[in-house]
Amino acid sequence: MPKEFEIAREFEVDATPEEVWEAVTAGTGGWLWPMEPPEPRTGGKGPFGSEVTVWDPPHRYTNRVEDVEGISEQTLNQLDYTVEPRDEGRRAWVRYVHSGIFVDDWDNQYDGASRHTDFYLHTLRQYLTVFRGRPVTAFATFDGPEAAKAPDALVTVGRALGLADDTAEGARVRVTGPGGQVIDAVVDHRDPYFLGLRTDDALLRFFGRNHWGHVVGMSVHDFAPGADAAADEETWKGWLNGVFSQP
């Protein structure tokens, strides 16, 4: 049964309005995923078949798409960003609203979208405050194998990295990555649904989508000079597959 939804968040960030605007419109993959940047005008073409309905840099940007991915003519998806200066323009206040219509499994879809929103916006703040001014050189995103649907799949990932179950957000850690490589990192985000690790050169994101009937996924936002997206995917996807192929 189609039903409307709205997910709204507000936050302040140590970045200028112009830097926030660049982050949400350039489509670089620094915090979300690479996408076609919107045409810089109201009525222009937005990413994933959307239309730009508001374009007022660096204050307001909205895109809207109907019949999402051909699912249903009743489907609607709209993303709205409002950005205002704080501290004489040295910082910014951001209001983000994701609204539209979910057609099926409304409660599960809403819960998943709401929790993903918090994690994505957290990653945006990490990007703006830690990697500001550094271009992303490689981005990779992929899913784990079917076994990564297990109820404890994200817990399994944390343990495979060498994290204790009670390692808290903010901890400085040494984790074990692909090929046994030891990686110095900060646990920049951790809850039962998502895990975020920040290194000197990358944001590593682990998505516990097993909570919504899917498999654990991962994304790598790599800022190291000369980084290669295909290599990042090959090494980390191989590691993630290996986590769930252990006897």
Rank of each mutant, 00 (worst) to 15 (best):
H122V: 08
E6K: 07
V182S: 12
N63C: 13
E84C: 00
W31F: 13
G242T: 01
P40G: 05
G144D: 04
F194C: 02
N210M: 08
L204V: 13
N210Y: 06
G213C: 06
V187A: 04
V186P: 07
G30V: 01
F11W: 11
A26I: 10
A229M: 08
E88G: 09
W21K: 00
H211R: 14
R86Q: 14
E233A: 14
Q181W: 03
V155E: 11
F131A: 08
L76G: 03
Q126E: 15
R90K: 15
W93Y: 14
H59W: 05
L32A: 11
H211T: 08
Y110S: 04
T28S: 15
D184G: 14
R205D: 11
D222E: 07
D14E: 13
K237Q: 14
G226S: 10
F244Q: 08
W55K: 03
Q74Y: 12
E84L: 11
E22K: 14
A229Y: 10
A171I: 03
R134T: 14
P38E: 05
V52A: 00
G238M: 02
V13L: 05
R115D: 06
R209W: 15
V52N: 00
Y127L: 11
V68S: 00
H59G: 09
L128E: 01
V54P: 05
D14M: 08
F5I: 07
N63R: 09
D118T: 10
D56E: 15
D232E: 13
M1T: 14
W31N: 05
I101R: 08
L240C: 08
E51V: 15
Q74H: 15
N108T: 15
A153Y: 00
F48P: 00
E146N: 12
E10K: 13
V97W: 01
P192Y: 00
G49P: 01
S72M: 03
L204T: 04
L204W: 10
T141G: 14
V243Q: 02
E169C: 08
R198K: 06
R64K: 13
A224L: 11
A150E: 07
Y81T: 02
V182Q: 14
G177Q: 02
L32M: 12
D87R: 14
P58T: 09
A147S: 10
G89K: 04
P34A: 07
P225V: 12
V52R: 00
V68D: 00
F223G: 10
D67A: 12
P40Y: 02
E146G: 05
E51R: 09
T167K: 06
T42H: 06
T62Y: 07
T199L: 10
E69H: 08
A148Q: 03
F131I: 04
G242E: 03
